[in-house]
Amino acid sequence: MSELILHNELPRGHEAEAAALYWEAFGGKLGKLLGPDDKGRQFFAKTVNPEAVIAATDKTGRLLGIAAHKAGVNGFSTATTADLFRHYGLGALWRLIPLAMLERDAPKGTLQMDGICVAETARGQGVGSALFDALFDYARQNGFTHVTLDVIDTNPRAEALYERLGFIATGEETTGPLKPLLGFNSATKMVLTL
């Protein structure tokens, strides 16, 4: 692989690429709420929050992966209710409650992971590991003592990876009657102490 360059913010001009990566990773979870695919990618491209994205590019500027985080109000997306109505029209109404259920705020001193995604052509080349290292460094440099994330029950490989990185499961939340809409039954909260 060519030289990997890490950025503490998403470089300008990569919003659509970052949205496509995010949708590729999480479209299965978000597709029924924010799809179809083209509409979901467009929604994220218009609302991506560059300050909440650690990005990996090669020396030509090609986006290889992203690690999104949430330290305040916004994570990967800055979308508001008004953005939902602008993009989905009256269809935003039925989306509001399920989307609110997916929203997470981290406790004080904790950085919330909001997704990690690596381009298919860059997988198995250390990009994901470099993004995790950069995310943990970012958290330490900004005074966070913990990193937290949620992993859904349909992704046991990710949960095993997080355990290898030192994350510990601290609780589980079920989706209840929203399972058919969300496509998963539960999410496990995991925490890493830095």
Rank of each mutant, 00 (worst) to 15 (best):
F136W: 10
L84D: 10
R95I: 01
E103A: 00
S77Y: 05
L96D: 01
A100G: 09
G124D: 04
G109Y: 10
G109K: 11
G124W: 03
A119E: 06
F76Y: 08
C117T: 15
A139L: 05
I97T: 13
A130S: 11
L84Q: 08
I66F: 07
A71Q: 12
L96K: 09
T80H: 04
A82Y: 03
Q141L: 12
R86I: 01
P107V: 02
E120I: 10
A130P: 12
S77P: 06
A82V: 04
L84S: 10
L102F: 01
L131C: 01
L99E: 07
S129K: 12
R95H: 04
P107T: 00
L93H: 05
K108Q: 08
M101S: 12
Q112R: 00
L84A: 04
R95Q: 06
T110N: 10
G109E: 05
D105P: 01
T80S: 13
Y138M: 15
F76V: 00
L99C: 02
L90E: 07
T78W: 05
Q125N: 13
L131I: 02
G124Y: 05
Q125P: 14
L135W: 14
N74T: 03
G124M: 03
A130C: 04
M101Y: 11
Y88H: 11
M113P: 13
D133S: 14
S129I: 04
G65T: 10
G89H: 08
A79F: 09
I116T: 05
G128K: 12
D133M: 15
R123K: 10
A130I: 02
T121N: 14
A71N: 13
L131D: 09
I116M: 12
T81R: 13
S77G: 02
T81P: 14
A106G: 04
V73F: 11
G126A: 01
E120Q: 15
I97V: 12
G143R: 05
K108C: 02
G89R: 05
H69Y: 09
D114E: 08
T78P: 02
G91L: 06
I66S: 08
M101H: 07
S129G: 15
G91K: 10
F132N: 03
G75T: 06
T78V: 11
N142I: 01
Q141K: 15
A139P: 10
T121H: 13
L102Y: 07
K108L: 01
N74D: 07
R123D: 03
T78D: 07
A71W: 09
G89V: 05
G109R: 11
A68N: 06
I66A: 06
L90R: 15
I97W: 15
T81Y: 13
H69L: 01
I97H: 14
Y138G: 12
P98G: 08
G65I: 05
